[in-house]
Nucleic acid binder design. Structure first.
Lengths: 154, 154
DNA sequence: ATGAGTGCAAAGGCTTTGCATTAGG
DNA sequence: CCTAATGCAAAGCCTTTGCACTCAT
């Protein structure tokens, strides 16, 4: 067993298989449109907005993108990410990418992934669990963002 | 000087004065509508949605609420909070409330304030600053949420 | 064949904006 | 008085939904 470590990300090559399985579990097909979306997200290594996804999944209707992302979210392979941005962003779930956080640029709205040490994650979770319990709140997970100005916007 | 400690919150009684000053700095008046909004936010001790604000600032038009919140945000006394919720929430800036985080209920969307120890905040900032620098990102601050299920929804 | 998936266009819902009116200094 | 602030209603913008068509099983 991997001790207190978070579960490891799925290897890139196995993502498609993993997604197909998860979709199958809720009676959904792994169609071309969904395959394109997952590929775009897997390649990006950061949360993508709908326009960005549509750029890479040429031929996919905007409404289908929204619908498919909802299906993928229900299947547990995609997560809707909230930023200061006007529009929603999506990324593969941490089952596939591993636990990480985001750096959000307050100027251009871009978002990149970052990871911090397990020891700090662990301490943080312990501290949050403590205050959550005190409030009768059942913690599922935490969300941590670095807000600032990206390299390009400085 | 208060060492590494984050700046202290402004006493409740002084909030109005502080807000008036900040508004004055950008050439804005502290009108009745704005006073009502600030009072509602100060009393709530948690981020409020526009509907919640309008409930307490009776007589204020929705459009005025949006406009005033934008003005207050520009004055640096109000912050727009991002949650999983469909609608925006607003709270007084940390200048007034002190540094804190949020517990977001994934069922009903409610949000409550939480605070964790300065030592962990400090460690966290150090770790985030490190990864940010490595990416050429200029960190302004961090944002941390506990996501889970609130007392009421369990 | 037969229902899921897709595209297109229209509808929704929160937020923003235009314009005439009101009020604070 | 004179400009900022407000209310009301219309417009915007991202997102969702309806409906007919297509594709895979």
């Amino acid at each position: 067993m991997a001790s207190h470590q978070h579960s490891d990300p799925v290897a890139a090559a196995d993502i498609a298989h993993h997604v197909a399985t998860k979709l199958g579990e809720i009676g959904q097909r792994f169609t071309t449109g969904r395959r394109d979306i997952v590929s775009a997200l897997a390649a990006a290594q950061r949360p993508l907005s709908i326009p960005e996804i549509l750029d890479q999944a040429k031929g996919l209707a905007q409404s289908s993108a929204y619908r498919n992302l909802t299906v993928l979210e229900n299947a547990g392979v995609v997560v809707r990410v909230i930023t200061t941005d006007e529009w929603a962003r999506y990324e593969l779930s941490e089952d596939l990418t591993g636990h990480h956080h985001h750096m959000v640029c307050s100027v251009c709205g871009s978002v990149d992934d970052v990871r911090i040490s397990d020891s700090i994650e662990h301490e943080l979770d312990a501290a949050l669990e403590k205050v959550a319990q005190k409030a009768g709140f059942k913690m599922a997970h935490h969300r941590l963002d670095v807000v600032g100005v990206c390299k390009t916007c400085q």
